[in-house]
């Protein structure tokens, strides 16, 4: 039985299946969505290696990466400062204030760095991706690309995914470094932890494995965020019950919300796989 037949079947007594029917419908919609996203992502990743992509990727690295640096820097600094403050007061109770450097660095490198960077970039660049592609869809610019024999996935989507894969780890590294400096500001400069002990603990506790796991997460988040945001924008015209500018707004909102949720879900999955 194919899906269309299943959907159109009139002989299913709906009243007798008050829960099963909407559940099944939702499940099929979810499977369809996941299938569509997977194909969209696969095709776009493949097209990264097509000719004429380098200038487009560089342009997107500037837009997604360079222009997000300031916000990542600010969030990283204050996250590190808050971590330094909170962890100092907790560790002092156990007489272990000297390990503040380890606690701050490991929290940032393993978890907070990749996750918060991804969420920040989603808010800044992901929303822009969805809105930009969405408005190009409703103004028929994407159709115009098709008629010019230019694959929209190659021209619009794959440079953004490639640029995200390049930018996310770099921004994560920036976040980690600035976060550690933030921890230093509160821990050492304000609360009096020994500066040498702080940096010794950072160096001795953070291993290559931790840094790599942070980067793996950053790459996974990059693919998720860029794919979801581009996908939502690309299919703006298929938003239910909304058209035009309203559909673009809806696509942008759903792109950000979905990306943030999936970042946290993927974080758990990747962490458990890397443990």
């Amino acid at each position: 039985m194919n899906m269309t037949n299943w959907k159109n079947r009139n002989d299913v007594p709906r009243a007798r299946w008050p829960l099963i029917h909407p559940l099944g419908k939702g499940m099929i919609r979810l499977i369809n969505y996941l299938g569509a996203v997977s194909i969209f992502m696969g095709k776009s990743l493949f097209m990264i290696f097509q000719p004429r992509q380098v200038p487009l990727i560089i342009e997107q690295v500037y837009s997604i990466g360079a222009r997000s640096a300031l916000i990542v820097l600010l969030v990283g600094l204050f996250t590190g400062m808050v971590l330094g403050l909170q962890l100092f007061h907790t560790l002092v109770k156990f007489g272990s204030a000297g390990v503040l450097g380890s606690a701050v660095a490991l929290s940032l490198v393993r978890e907070l760095g990749p996750v918060l960077t991804a969420i920040m970039v989603t808010a800044r660049a992901g929303s822009a991706m969805a809105a930009e592609i969405g408005s190009q869809r409703i103004s028929e610019q994407i159709d115009a690309l098709v008629t010019m024999r230019i694959d929209p996935l190659r021209y619009l989507v794959s440079p953004r995914i490639a640029a995200s894969i390049i930018s996310f780890p770099l921004l994560t590294a920036l976040f980690d470094i600035i976060g550690i400096i933030g921890g230093y500001i509160t821990g050492v400069m304000l609360l009096g932890v020994n500066a040498g002990a702080y940096f010794y603990r950072v160096r001795s506790s953070v291993e290559m494995e931790d840094i790599m796991s942070g980067f793996v997460k950053a790459v996974v988040f990059a693919v998720i965020v860029s794919t979801i945001c581009c996908f939502q924008g690309y299919f703006t015209h298929m938003q239910k019950d909304s058209y035009g500018a309203k559909a673009v707004g809806l696509s942008t909102t759903s792109a950000v919300v979905l990306s943030c949720v999936l970042i946290l879900v993927a974080d758990y999955v990747v962490t458990s796989l890397l443990m």
């Binding site: 190009q136 103004s139 028929e140 610019q141 159709d143 115009a144």
Partner: peptide
């Protein structure tokens, strides 16, 4: 295109 579809 009817609405031109120029890249804005």
């Amino acid at each position: 295109f009817q609405n031109n579809a120029l890249f804005d």
